[in-house]
């Protein structure tokens, strides 16, 4: 049914969902960052497989780009600034077990919704079949998990990690739907990601040094 390459891409895509789940549900920010790093490396591998499968050797450039930005720079920033704040995530809005169930539910619902309605959102015939179908379903699932974490987590560093997850979801969609996108756009996107994460973490450590907490809900000095 699937060619070996397609199968590899699909298996790796599912592994992405697993790393997203671990990133969201781990309450230890260091472990959460490691799960994120694992996801970034998986993205690089998926991209490399695409580069061979299509074949589109320009995608190897993407691999290097993703490896440098998401595999090295963002994890480094998370580690560097993570040391300056509390390692344990601020108490989330939803406690551990209910959150686990909700996250699993979201994974199943969003994967199923996207996978079964793929014809509705497929932009062109060129990407109509597998492995694009599974890939996009995974991308939407990762995006939604990130959004879920962003909405339910009070910790500002966790919110940044959630934003990283959302970006990974969108970038996975980008590489599976638009592998021919020019390098300039790709470099621009990657640069934006790194700078935004750096600035967010820089500001959060400022907040931590002033308030002694990274609980975004405790801030709320600004109302109305």
């Amino acid at each position: 049914m699937f060619s070996p390459m397609q199968l590899i891409i699909i298996i790796l895509s599912f592994a992405l969902v697993l790393t997203s789940f671990l990133t969201v549900e781990s309450r230890d920010l260091v472990k959460s960052s490691r799960a994120y790093l694992a996801q970034a490396l998986l993205l690089v591998v998926i991209l490399a497989v695409y580069a061979v499968y299509l074949p589109n050797h320009e995608l190897f450039l993407w691999c290097v780009m993703i490896l440098i930005t998401k595999g090295i720079m963002v994890p480094y920033l998370l580690r560097y600034y993570g040391r300056k704040v509390s390692r344990q995530e601020a108490e989330p809005l939803i406690s551990f077990w209910p959150s686990l169930v909700i996250a699993l539910g979201l994974i199943i619902v969003f994967f199923w919704l996207t996978h079964s309605n793929y014809s509705f959102i497929v932009p062109s015939d060129a990407v109509a079949g597998e492995p694009y179908r599974t890939n996009l379903a995974v991308a939407v699932t990762v995006l939604c998990l990130g959004l879920y974490a962003l909405l339910t987590r009070r910790d500002a560093v966790k919110a940044v990690i959630a934003l990283c997850l959302m970006e990974n979801g969108v970038h996975l969609a980008l590489m599976s739907l638009a592998p021919t996108i020019p390098e300039t756009a790709m470099i621009g996107v990657a640069t934006d990601v790194v700078i935004s994460i750096w600035m967010l973490l820089y500001i959060i450590t400022g907040i931590y040094s002033k308030n002694g907490s990274t609980d975004a809900w405790e801030l709320s000095k600004l109302r109305g």
């Binding site: 940044v160 600035m199 500001i203 000095k221």
Partner: peptide, 9 residues
């Protein structure tokens, strides 16, 4: 700082 954080995120 709070405003900047909200703005960025």
């Amino acid at each position: 700082l709070e405003a900047g954080y909200k703005y960025l995120i």
